[in-house]
């Protein structure tokens, strides 16, 4: 019966978090709503990257490129074709899914550091491609594209920021739910098997090439969805918003949040959204040095990421309660 009890505690915890997330835009300032909106956007990207890197073992230092593609698809569709913002999200996701699969195919030949270099090159190249003159009619060149912020539908009594936040939250919950289901199923087990032992996975009848390519595609899809939402939130896309540093931030996000952990995406997103600001407040002169020290501190204090740290803390707590005769959580 203890397992059920632990499951119930988990669901209660998730419900509390969701309710708190829904209530958030009504209790903080509109600038904070904007910031938390970006946290949601990043968390979507981070789940996607974690599927690829954390669960499937393929390192990507270039997810900023897929994020950029998603953002540009949304901006171009809204600006040139008058497509409503909500419809650009699936379009961006699908475009990136295709782009991800196409990139994932040659990536099959590359491992470890080589894949890191190839994906990083993609991240470095993306701003240059976006600035390319032949595409300027569509991309707006260095200037980029400005898009307008959507109004709440049906005359709901919400500010634009609040509405957009709730819209993003709904999509983020959907994306988390999809990832959770994916990982519970056959494909999820195949992904992990390939990460841990590709040869054994192959011998078990898993089509390694197909799973790896698809994972790349799905991961890019997540980045694309995040990118489209990010473009709408920021109301602006330009090549220099998508420099290689963005891709590196995403990688930092999954490592700090917790590799191969779904909830880690949230902690990672909070880190990459807020820690640079905090660093800036601590030292105007050398904010990135402070940021670097934060990184070192997180890695040294929580080597398995925030998610791993919390899991450990939770296990210690329940073990103590169990020793005192209280309920215990089944080991997972």
């Amino acid at each position: 019966m203890r397992g059920m009890e632990a499951d119930r505690a988990r669901w209660i915890l998730i419900a509390v978090v969701v309710v708190a997330a829904c209530a958030l835009p009504f209790v903080v300032s509109s600038y904070r709503v904007f910031q938390f909106n970006l946290v949601l956007v990043y968390s979507i990207v981070l789940i996607g990257l974690n599927l690829l890197t954390g669960f499937n073992g393929q390192i990507s230092l270039g997810h900023g490129a897929f994020y950029a593609i998603g953002a540009y698809v949304a901006a171009i569709l809204m600006h040139h074709a008058g497509v409503p913002y909500w419809a650009t999200v699936p379009a961006a996701g699908l475009t990136c899914f295709v782009a991800g699969c196409l990139f994932g195919l040659p990536a099959l030949r590359l491992h470890g550091h080589y894949l890191a270099l190839a994906t990083f090159a993609l991240g470095v190249a993306m701003p240059q491609i976006l600035k390319y003159q032949g595409l300027e009619h569509w991309t707006g060149g260095v200037q980029g594209i400005v898009i307008s912020k959507p109004k709440p539908p049906l005359g709901l009594p919400l500010t634009q920021d609040q509405w957009l936040y709730l819209f993003t939250l709904a999509i983020a919950l959907l994306m988390f739910w999809i990832a959770w289901n994916l990982l519970r199923g056959r494909i999820g087990r195949a992904m992990v098997a390939i990460r841990d032992h590709p040869i054994a996975a192959e011998a078990m009848g898993i089509n390694v090439a197909a799973v790896k390519t698809l994972t790349f595609g799905v991961s890019a899809l997540y980045a694309g969805v995040g990118g489209a939402l990010g473009a709408v939130v920021v109301q602006f896309v330009a090549p220099d918003s998508f420099v290689a540093l963005l891709s590196i931030s995403f990688l930092i996000g999954i490592v700090i949040g917790g590799l191969a952990s779904i909830s880690g995406a949230i902690y990672g997103a909070l880190f990459i959204q807020f820690v640079p600001n905090i660093a800036d407040q601590i030292s105007r002169a050398a904010p990135w040095a402070v940021y670097g020290l934060f990184l070192l501190a997180f890695v040294f204090l929580m080597p398995t990421g925030v998610a791993g740290f919390l899991r450990l803390a939770w296990a210690r707590l329940t073990a103590r309660r169990a020793a005192a005769g209280g309920p215990i959580r089944e080991p997972r």
């Binding site: 890197t53 999954i254 490592v255 020290l293």
Partner: peptide, 13 residues
């Protein structure tokens, strides 16, 4: 990947 993050930290510092 943890080591990669440490290297990135050194880089920005």
């Amino acid at each position: 990947l943890t080591v990669v993050v440490v290297f990135i930290a050194l880089l920005v510092i």
